[in-house]
């Protein structure tokens, strides 16, 4: 190609000239990029600069430039305080149990749906399964509260099985099961989309060949279907593991209360409470930074593994 030849020559041209030519040719693209980049700089990168608050005794009157630096005091205060271990334990337990219980369901659902012959039934079931995804967290937690009040449905069911402790929503031992269970309910259908499409991509000739070889339905699932979606499963699992320290606060703070803090309070919800409710800005920022850094490291490791095992990676 002619282009390759001209590019080879360009390497000889100095970097300055290259940039000048690029700016002349692509100035309109850079003008376009200016707007979204300005947005990210203001709302993402300037806040990153604000992280220095974590190392200060931040005073909102003095501002970032006038506040006193205190080194790692805020971090030490958190690590030595009573909340650190509780937050860490709850964060890990919610995300690990969440992964353990919520990961298999979309796969099983996709496999079951894959066995359905009637196209119409399949379509309707699939559409219904997306319904909870479109409901807001506020509504999901509202309905959950209604089901878990003293005479609510789930409390009644628990009572039927011999649990007589009253409203489930205000009891610490029920918080995590309810949190994870409602997450499964909300995301099962949506999370199954990717597996359903992976299943649809399996070559039908493989099944025909297997039938000729005398393989039954079960053997077909074991030797064709599962290997066919194995790579999708592995990649998603690793990406999910990369999020292990990342439990969002939005649903937690709608659901929890002082009576359930013991099992409900995660790092991010504590960041919210300390920062927004108590207005202890530096302390909150320090805890947030600790969480972000750990997140970043875990994500990095997960991504490296993912790239090694398969071709899929975030970057």
């Amino acid at each position: 190609m002619k282009k390759d030849a001209s590019q080879a020559v360009e390497i000889q041209v100095s970097r300055g000239k290259l940039i000048k030519r690029d700016l002349r040719r692509n100035w309109s693209l850079y003008v376009m990029a200016l707007f979204p980049l300005a947005y990210f700089i203001i709302f993402n990168y300037v806040p990153m600069g604000g992280i220095v608050m974590a190392f200060q005794d931040f005073n909102i009157r003095k501002g970032i430039f006038g506040s006193e630096f205190v080194g790692l005091k805020n971090f030490i205060r958190y690590f030595n305080g009573p909340n650190f271990w509780r937050n860490l334990r709850n964060t890990l337990s919610i995300s690990l149990y969440g992964l353990l219980f919520s990961f298999p369901f979309p796969i099983i659902f996709a496999l079951c749906l894959n066995e359905v012959r009637n196209k119409y039934f399949k379509k309707v079931t699939q559409t219904i399964s997306y319904l909870p995804y479109f409901i807001s967290v506020v509504v999901v937690v509202s309905i959950l509260n209604d089901f878990c009040k003293a005479n609510g449905l789930l409390t009644q069911i628990a009572a039927f099985f011999g649990d007589n402790g009253g409203a489930l929503i205000s009891r610490p031992e029920w918080f995590q099961p309810l949190f994870i269970g409602s997450n499964i309910w909300q995301h099962l259908g949506y999370n199954s989309i990717i597996f359903i499409s992976a299943l649809a991509a399996i070559d039908p000739e493989l099944y025909e060949a297997a039938v000729i070889d005398g393989a039954g339905r079960w053997k077909q699932t074991l030797y064709i279907t599962l290997p066919g979606i194995a790579s999708t499963i592995v990649v998603l699992l690793i990406l999910r593991l990369g999020q292990i320290m990342n439990v969002g606060y939005e649903k937690i703070i709608l659901m929890y209360g002082p009576s359930t803090y013991e099992t409900a309070d995660v790092i991010s919800s504590y960041v919210y409470r300390v920062g927004i409710v108590d207005a202890d800005y530096s302390f909150s920022t320090a805890i947030n930074l600790f969480n972000s850094v750990v997140n970043f490291i875990v994500l990095f490791i997960g991504n490296a593994i993912s790239r090694k095992i398969s071709d899929t990676s975030l970057w």
Binding site: I42, F43, M48, G49, G50, M53, V271, G275, I276, N288
Partner: peptide, 15 residues
Amino acid sequence: FTMIFNGGLIPTFMV
């Protein structure tokens, strides 16, 4: 980079 790291709740609030 904005996908994997951010300033966090309070610094964003301050901005």
